[in-house]
């Protein structure tokens, strides 16, 4: 039985309004339960690739299937339901700074309600409890009524992870989740992602800057350069030279 890929990108091309090519003819299959890391220089198109998957960026050509269903063609209501299946974690955490941690995490449930209910804050007690449990899973339970801007960077990122956990998605997209954090907190955040991957069987696709973290947590590596996939393979089969090539190759320009 051929397994249905969780994410499938077919001939995806993205050209920005100003003519810059973001993605060039990407073909990619990611299966359920994989932990994929995408590596590449900044500006190589990692972020664009990730944002194409949940259609935060619309693509110019091609098609993207989520669990066999095209997100490219989805209309507003259906798009929301599809996005519900895809959680996202950001480099800058993207919490609403002046809202409480509880409210930030509850936002993960938005697509499960009609808009008017959430507007009047009519979340079920069950969802509130679910939120609290998610916060306990990432060790942030005692901050549930704090305001998001009172937390440190690492704490904010864990709240963001709790938000994704509350959303109960099948896929998690992590866009440089550790880039604004110190090494120790970075590792904790990656452990949390690993927990989501192993315990809840969520498919994780993460952009990572740090080769070290990529090696420690990723199962599969995808290398991106100038909007194209230049490498795709299992982590254990990937020699150091591949990373060297991705980061130091390009136009022969030395990067640190």
């Amino acid at each position: 039985m051929a397994e249905q890929p969780m994410i499938e990108m077919k001939n995806v091309t993205k050209v920005y309004d100003n003519g810059t090519v973001g993605l060039k003819n990407i073909n990619l299959k990611i299966n359920k339960g994989e932990f994929v890391v995408i590596v590449g220089l900044s500006g190589a198109g990692k972020s664009t690739l990730l944002r194409a998957i949940n259609r935060l960026h619309d693509i110019s050509e091609g098609d993207i299937l989520i669990d066999g269903e095209s997100i490219t063609k989805a209309k507003s209501k259906n798009l929301r339901l599809m996005r519900r299946k895809i959680g996202m974690i950001f480099q800058s955490f993207n919490l609403v700074k002046r809202s409480s941690v509880l409210r930030n995490v509850l936002a993960g449930r938005l697509a499960y309600y009609p808009t008017w209910k959430t507007t009047f804050n009519l979340f079920t007690d069950e969802d509130k409890q679910r939120t609290y449990e998610a916060l306990q899973s990432v060790g942030m339970a005692e901050k549930v009524y704090s305001r998001a801007d009172e937390l440190s960077g690492g704490q904010q990122q864990r709240v963001a992870i709790a938000r994704v956990l509350t959303q109960r998605p099948e896929i998690i997209l992590a866009d440089e989740p550790t880039a604004s954090l110190d090494p120790k907190t970075s590792r904790q955040v990656m452990e949390d992602l690993k927990m989501l991957n192993e315990k809840f069987d969520m498919t994780v696709v993460a952009n990572l800057h740090s080769i070290e973290l990529a090696k420690d947590f990723g199962h599969r590596v995808i290398g991106v350069r100038a909007g194209e996939i230049v490498y795709d393979g299992k982590m254990e089969d990937t020699p150091q030279s591949v990373f060297d090539n991705i980061y130091k190759g390009g136009k022969g320009k030395e990067e640190d």
């Binding site: 996202m88 993207n94 938005l110």
Partner: peptide, 14 residues
């Protein structure tokens, strides 16, 4: 934050 809400499946009003 707006992007995060959109990514979680929130509508424009959300």
């Amino acid at each position: 934050p707006a992007e995060a809400i959109t990514a979680a499946g929130g509508s424009k009003f959300n």
